[in-house]
């Protein structure tokens, strides 16, 4: 297991190098001279040259890349073009907000998805199963910004139960979490259901029953552990999709998270901030995949490492 984790960590290196090259190229692939972009259209030549000098833009590209990499590892992405404050000062507070939103939503979708999926499978073809699956289909097909707007309309404006905007107090958390977590919950519910139905047919389930195991333990001990194996992968993919989904959700609920920061920075052509946001999202995505791989392997001892 340890060798497996070490090997997977080593495999991250080329992936991360690829990601950093892409992010680094953002500046250089955009039309125009980065220093010019940084300085603004009407800046005098002297300013542009000063910037080129400061950023080392006259160095060969590989050198520039390694400097960028060395800075990135120290979480130093330079200064924002809008206010010359360090990029980290912009990104970090926003990052915690988005991370909170993403984690709470994931917990919400796992919790709801697993319960709904298990109930559906155990009561296959009953009213509960059919209703859960219909609701899941809706949850899956609804664009999440639309769901967000509907929730605000009903629960904030009509009923006044929750705050329609912001992030922090409990009554600001509920609606964004539901908005962001619903699609994931629906996917997890469907996956759990089909996986459970498949597992419950297996010979080893019959063996467990033949041993005198109670039906409850047959389901929760023997079937669930096996049924979760494919679900774990879905949960991992879900988390990735969710990071992207935060952009819309943050916009709808006016949450000052990284998603909104990213959009604002793209519009303001604030390249250093864009680079930092993209890199952080990419690294998290890769790390989550690693965690999924490891849990998948912990659950399923049969997987061949090679």
């Amino acid at each position: 297991m340890t060798t497996f984790i070490i090997r997977r960590l080593l495999q991250l290196i080329p992936v991360l190098i690829g990601v950093t090259i892409l992010v680094f190229s953002l500046m250089h692939l955009t039309p125009g001279n980065p220093a010019m972009i940084l300085a603004g259209e009407n800046a005098p030549d002297a300013t542009v040259q000063a910037i080129e000098q400061r950023l080392g833009l006259n160095d060969p590209l590989p050198i520039q890349y390694f400097n960028f990499l060395a800075d990135a590892i120290r979480l130093d992405f330079g200064v924002s073009m809008r206010d010359n404050l360090p990029v980290a000062d912009h990104v970090m507070p926003r990052f915690w907000v988005t991370l909170e939103l993403a984690i709470y939503s994931t917990i919400f979708s796992i919790f709801l998805g697993l319960i709904a999926g298990i109930v559906s499978a155990v009561r296959q073809y009953t009213i509960s199963d059919i209703s859960i699956m219909i609701v899941a289909l809706f949850g899956l097909s609804m664009p999440n910004f639309w769901l967000g707007l509907m929730l605000i309309q009903y629960f904030s404006i009509n009923l006044g139960w929750f705050d329609p905007t912001g992030w922090g107090s409990p009554n600001q958390l509920v609606l964004p979490i539901i908005t962001l977590g619903t699609a994931g919950a629906a996917i997890i519910a469907r996956m759990t259901r089909s996986s459970m139905l498949d597992v419950i047919q297996q010979d080893y389930i019959r063996t467990a029953r033949a041993k005198g195991v109670r039906e409850r333990y047959v389901v929760y001990k023997h079937a669930l552990k096996n049924a979760l194996i494919p679900v774990v992968t879905v949960i991992g993919l879900q988390f990735g999709a969710l990071l992207a989904g935060t952009v819309l959700t943050e916009t709808v609920f006016a949450i000052n998270g990284m998603g909104r920061l990213l959009i604002d920075s793209i519009q303001a052509r604030d390249f250093p901030v864009v680079q930092a946001c993209v890199l952080i999202i990419a690294v998290i995505f890769v790390l989550v995949n690693l965690i999924v791989d490891i849990s998948y392997r912990l659950l399923n001892k049969r997987i061949d490492l090679d």
């Binding site: 019959r206 063996t207 029953r209 033949a210 041993k211 023997h222 552990k225 399923n300 001892k301």
Partner: peptide, 19 residues
């Protein structure tokens, strides 16, 4: 079940819980 009367099955490959 499994106490007074036990049963073994045809498919040893799939009759044990893999996890």
């Amino acid at each position: 079940r499994g106490n007074k009367i036990s049963m073994i099955f045809q498919e040893p490959m799939t009759s044990l819980n893999p996890t």
